[in-house]
């Protein structure tokens, strides 16, 4: 059953340089208990999508200009701030890349988790603290009882991210949005946190939106993937399908551009060159009438620059926005 439905979402910022079309008509669904990855390069609109769902776009700078976001059938875009506050941190929680931005430096860990629990679940302070300790144990912070009285700065980066996860899960959310939750962490700590998230997901049965720029993280955590480019969804499929049969030229380019640690690229002795994607991502202040990838795409034709390609289901459950998928798929064979 679908728990989240995003339809034709447009979120824009109004800056001195013009209107930034940060999210430019994005749609996707998320099923209960499912993990959906949103992947793309920096600036493609991943975080703004997440912030839009939580209605955290600062009104002074930007807003959701059109589209619909339904959570359990309830339209979020028209809720009041008061109503949203009842949902954030309760039914929907978020984990950020930099835990320090969302942890309060002057409050103890225990106080911060308990406050959220008391506010949303209406339990006593003591029960809130008990839940906080339980959650710290759940995220495998050793000596949880003592840690309740510590401040964020006393913890390492990996531990802070665990605290963030504990806090996000304390009210048993139905939806967890994780925005680059391991990007700031070292590889061995990233492995700990991803492992923990996968384990907790089983226990808590929350749906997860995993935002990342790392295709490795996608492959290891998600069931389904949405690939974004320049504010738009360009491809969507299950993880196995996407990696086996990438269809959009951008997705393919991305996959070939990654230096792989699991592949010996130069069996012949000479160092292999990586496949480059020429050029760079477009600026989002100019309206892009056609395909946003056209200036960098080896398959581009005039039609591509003139008309925006629709999302088409080319294989079962696999959609891509490209005029020339036939030619793209041919080339692979």
């Amino acid at each position: 059953m679908s728990i989240l439905q995003v339809r034709d979402l447009h979120t824009q910022f109004f800056t001195q340089d013009g209107v930034v079309r940060a999210v430019d008509g994005v749609s996707f669904d998320l099923d209960q208990g499912e993990t959906l990855a949103i992947v793309g390069e920096s600036g493609c609109g991943k975080s703004v999508t997440a912030m839009s769902i939580l209605r955290l776009i600062q009104a002074e700078t930007g807003r959701i200009v059109s589209g619909s976001i339904k959570f359990e059938g309830r339209e979020l875009t028209t809720l009041t701030e008061e109503q949203m506050r009842g949902i954030r941190g309760h039914d929907i929680s978020m984990i950020f890349q930099e835990p320090m931005t969302s942890l309060n430096p002057v409050l103890t860990i225990g106080t911060q988790i308990a406050e959220n629990v008391v506010r949303h679940l209406g339990v006593s302070w003591q029960e809130g603290l008990n839940r906080a300790q339980e959650m710290l144990e759940l995220v495998k912070i050793s000596d949880a009882k003592r840690r309740l009285d510590e401040y964020p700065h006393q913890l390492s980066g990996g531990m802070r991210q665990r605290v963030m996860i504990a806090m996000a899960l304390a009210c048993r959310p139905k939806l967890l949005i994780a925005d680059e939750p391991t990007t700031a962490l070292d590889v061995t700590i990233q492995a700990q946190i991803l492992d923990l998230m996968l384990e907790l997901k089983e226990k808590i049965d929350a749906a997860i939106v995993m935002i990342t720029h790392d295709l490795g993280v996608v492959a290891e955590t998600a069931q389904r993937v949405v690939v974004m480019y320049a504010g738009r969804k360009v491809e969507e499929a299950t993880v196995g399908e996407l990696f086996a049969h990438p269809m959009h030229p951008y997705t393919r380019g991305l996959m070939r551009a990654i230096p792989r640690l699991d592949i010996d690229a130069e069996a012949e002795g000479r160092r292999a060159r990586l496949q480059e994607i020429p050029g760079m991502v477009p600026v989002l202040t100019q309206p892009i009438p056609g395909c946003a990838f056209a200036p960098r795409c080896p398959f581009a034709t005039e039609k591509c620059t003139a008309e925006r390609p629709p999302l088409v289901e080319n294989r079962p459950g696999h959609i891509a926005a490209c005029w020339h998928t036939d030619r793209v798929l041919e080339q692979a064979a």
């Binding site: 390492s156 531990m159 070292d186 590889v187 492995a191 996608v218 290891e220 990696f243």
Partner: peptide, 26 residues
């Protein structure tokens, strides 16, 4: 060995032999 096993690999079809999760922090 642990460092290599910890890095996520962009290939869902690849079954990793064994992921070594190191305890604690550096």
């Amino acid at each position: 060995e642990a460092l290599l096993s910890a890095a996520p690999v962009p290939d869902p079809a690849r079954k990793r032999a064994r992921r070594i999760i190191l305890p604690g922090d550096v």
